[in-house]
Amino acid sequence: MSNVGWRQGLWRTLYWTYERATWQYDLMVIAILAFVWLTPPDWLGDPMARGTGLAGWLLLWFG
């Protein structure tokens, strides 16, 4: 993707004008869920959860 394409993509992600139930919305939801479930709680200093989380499990299984 060109530099202009990346910039446009970033702008459209930040300046969100898409409706719900569009592929862009789905993509955003997947990105958010990936962050929530894959980020190890220890990295965020989560006061209620410990360990490496789902990412740790995946690394253990496939690593």
Partner: peptide
């Protein structure tokens, strides 16, 4: 709900915080 049911409230808070700031700016 996802944060509570899967005990990932810290990550959820970060997401809500950052995207709420962006939404207000939008």
């Amino acid at each position: 709900m996802i944060g509570a049911l899967t005990n990932r409230m810290a990550a959820v808070l970060w997401v809500i915080c950052v995207l709420s700031v962006v939404t207000v700016a939008d």
